Deep mutational scan, measured.
Amino acid sequence: MASQGTKRSYEQMETDGERQNATEIRASVGKMIDGIGRFYIQMCTELKLSDYEGRLIQNSLTIERMVLSAFDERRNKYLEEHPSAGKDPKKTGGPIYKRVDRKWMRELVLYDKEEIRRIWRQANNGDDATAGLTHMMIWHSNLNDTTYQRTRALVRTGMDPRMCSLMQGSTLPRRSGAAGAAVKGVGTMVMELIRMIKRGINDRNFWRGENGRKTRSAYERMCNILKGKFQTAAQRAMMDQVRESRNPGNAEIEDLIFLARSALILRGSVAHKSCLPACVYGPAVASGYDFEKEGYSLVGIDPFKLLQNSQVYSLIRPNENPAHKSQLVWMACNSAAFEDLRVLSFIRGTKVSPRGKLSTRGVQIASNENMDAMESSTLELRSRYWAIRTRSGGNTNQQRASAGQISVQPAFSVQRNLPFDKPTIMAAFTGNTEGRTSDMRAEIIRMMEGAKPEEMSFQGRGVFELSDERAANPIVPSFDMSNEGSYFFGDNAEEYDN
């Protein structure tokens, strides 16, 4: 993207840094990872977990959730003011799984939030270390993106479920800051804005008074975040219109849905970061690795190297396929839920299948599930090659597409044709070009129609051997075009429920 120079890199967003050079960025990201790792080690000690239990991804998720809940100030305040039966607002906890007599047992633990905050700050040299908290939120978000298709949420806001490739980060909490905003897809931002506008339509006082002023500035800020994701002048001009509207209503909703559809071809720039579970960072720190000293990046080879040398386990339900569970977590670790499966298959070195073909449910185990038949197995999170994460949407291309997802959002900077089903997408653009945004709409449609099938995206960008740390010898991959490109292809993934 041309304006790259004016933006802070995501590592800076990730670490609240002012302008830093590459070495400083690597050190501050490393410091953040160190903090998460030290916190995780301490929690495993508190909970008396064995090494194996500490490497269980379900335990990692519970521990991450506990610290996120302990620092969720708004919710904590709300819980104190609106006490609900049987919930102690000062405590947080969740299921911890232990191996007892050759069987997995679930144990519900409860801790004072104050105590968890103390352990977290102690692991982070006394700081609140917001960057580390956001990092864990993005890992949870990436896992949700890989596990669930947001059909219901899309339909509720009037969008087409086939636009799911635009929904990265749709389950990120509001408090995820600049680093969170960077990884949100165009569809996620559109959905947040539509929800806001709908509230304004239904509630006369939404934009009024002292609160209304705050609401208005939040609305304009979200519009600017979305505008910054678009790469064409016409899309940005249309966002200006939406932002400046005196009284946002149905016309703005129409414009936003139009823009979301246009992003299936004229893709937005959305950041991709490899955020790993805390149970990967903990053992690495415990083994003596100093992330701050060595430096770390979320968008280069580092996460690949770390996963190459990590042992992570997962509980497996009786009829689940461990290899499929591994694929789910591998995609989440690489922030690749909406990437082209052919690119992923090449990088991973084994075939990556669409969601609907995987015999696996989510990673988390519900409290009512029976533990008797639970097994555990090693997650295979290694890769054959590594590639640089991208934040450009890439230019655009036609490809055989599917009944489910009709476009992709690249996660890796790797040369390819970008699949999208042009006739299906263009069919949504018939007729409606009147109104105050008509010239911009016409211009956007013209650009979409001009998108050429034979153009290559990320020209000359390749993948790298894991021994090639400096990215000196790019390998331009070859793809098996007979395979499906979309992950949520004609899909039956479970729906995400809060």
Rank of each mutant, 00 (worst) to 15 (best):
I257W: 05
N432T: 14
D491I: 03
Q398I: 06
A260F: 04
G435Y: 07
V408I: 06
I96T: 11
E18C: 07
G209A: 04
T430L: 05
E380I: 08
R213Y: 09
D290N: 13
C279S: 08
Q311V: 09
T151C: 04
F458V: 04
K325I: 06
E210S: 08
G268C: 12
D101C: 03
F464L: 05
V363G: 01
N319V: 14
S376D: 03
M136L: 15
L108D: 05
R400C: 08
V363E: 08
G30S: 06
E484Q: 09
D16L: 01
G5E: 00
L276K: 14
S482V: 00
Q20Y: 00
S269Q: 09
V312T: 14
M426S: 08
A271T: 05
P318G: 12
I475N: 01
R317I: 08
L341E: 09
S402M: 03
Y296I: 04
E252D: 10
S376R: 01
Y219I: 01
N202H: 14
V463E: 12
K113G: 00
G37S: 14
L166K: 01
A286K: 09
G300K: 09
K305W: 11
H140L: 09
L307Q: 15
R117L: 13
R106F: 04
G132I: 14
Q459E: 11
R441N: 08
D372W: 07
S60E: 01
T134P: 03
Y289S: 11
C223K: 11
L358F: 10
R361G: 08
L298A: 01
L315F: 10
A411H: 01
L307D: 03
A263P: 00
N395T: 10
F230K: 07
D468W: 01
W386I: 10
L193S: 15
R99H: 08
F71Q: 09
K77F: 00
L226F: 10
S457A: 11
D468L: 00
D255R: 07
I347E: 01
Q327S: 09
A337C: 14
P423Q: 14
A373D: 03
F488H: 03
R162H: 05
S297C: 11
F346K: 05
N205P: 01
G431N: 05
Q168S: 15
K113L: 05
N144Q: 07
Q235A: 09
Q168R: 07
K325H: 09
R470V: 00
D255I: 08
P173V: 09
A22Q: 04
E11F: 01
K91R: 15
E64F: 05
A411F: 02
I265G: 02
Q415Y: 02
E469C: 01
N417T: 12
R470P: 00
K351E: 11
K227A: 08
N309R: 15
T171A: 05
Q459F: 11
M1P: 10
G212Q: 05
I444P: 04
M440R: 08
T390I: 08
E454Q: 14
D160E: 14
D421C: 13
A234W: 05
K293Q: 11
L154F: 02
I365N: 10
N395A: 13
S467E: 08
Q58K: 12
L143M: 12
K293D: 06
K98L: 13
R106P: 04
A234E: 06
G462Y: 09
M136W: 01
N395Q: 10
R75P: 01
S438Y: 07
A387F: 07
A182V: 09
S413L: 06
A263T: 15
V67N: 14
G132A: 13
M456P: 00
V155K: 14
C44M: 08
N473W: 11
G295H: 07
S176W: 02
A493H: 12
F39W: 15
N142E: 07
F429H: 02
V414Q: 05
S269W: 09
L276A: 09
A237N: 04
G460C: 13
I316Q: 02
I25Y: 02
K214E: 05
N21Q: 03
V408T: 15
F258L: 13
R446C: 05
F71D: 09
D340V: 08
Y40S: 03
R75I: 13
A153C: 11
V280M: 15
Q168T: 05
E484T: 15
S467G: 13
H82R: 11
S310C: 15
Q58D: 09
E465C: 00
M447I: 15
V109H: 03
S297I: 04
K357I: 10
P89N: 03
E454P: 03
L108Y: 06
M66I: 10
R152D: 04
F71W: 15
P303F: 04
R441I: 11
R461L: 09
T396I: 03
R391D: 02
K422Q: 11
L133F: 03
G94I: 11
T350Q: 10
N370L: 12
S345W: 04
A284K: 13
I347Y: 02
A286D: 11
G362F: 04
V109P: 03
D491K: 01
D88H: 02
V186R: 01
S9H: 00
L166S: 10
R26E: 09
G132S: 14
Q398W: 03
A451V: 07
Q415E: 00
E24Y: 04
A336H: 01
E46Y: 02
N224T: 12
Q405T: 02
L418V: 15
Q327A: 03
T23K: 05
R150N: 08
P161I: 03
I119P: 01
G212C: 08
R19M: 04
I301G: 07
F479R: 11
T23I: 06
L358Y: 08
G35T: 09
E484R: 00
A286F: 07
E192W: 09
A182S: 12
I33R: 00
F412N: 07
S262R: 04
A278C: 14
T232R: 15
L259C: 06
M426F: 02
M426W: 03
R236N: 06
N76M: 12
V414T: 15
G200S: 08
A2S: 01
E254K: 13
S345M: 04
A27N: 07
D480A: 11
P83L: 02
R175L: 01
L193E: 07
Y52C: 06
W104N: 09
L418D: 00
I36T: 14
Q311Y: 02
G35A: 13
R355H: 09
G450I: 13
I445G: 08
M159K: 07
D128Q: 04
Q235V: 03
L306E: 06
I253D: 09
N202M: 08
F206I: 13
V363T: 01
M448S: 05
A123L: 09
E454V: 14
T146H: 03
M136Q: 12
V155D: 10
N205L: 01
L298N: 05
N498W: 00
R204E: 04
I119Y: 06
R204W: 10
L418C: 15
S269F: 09
G212W: 09
D145N: 10
V186N: 05
T92H: 07
A263F: 01
Q42L: 05
D302I: 01
S314H: 03
G126I: 05
N247M: 10
A218V: 10
Y97N: 09
T147P: 04
S69C: 11
N368C: 10
L79F: 07
Q12L: 12
M238W: 01
A233T: 15
H135N: 10
I25A: 02
P354Q: 07
E192Q: 08
G200P: 04
Y281G: 07
N211V: 13
R75S: 05
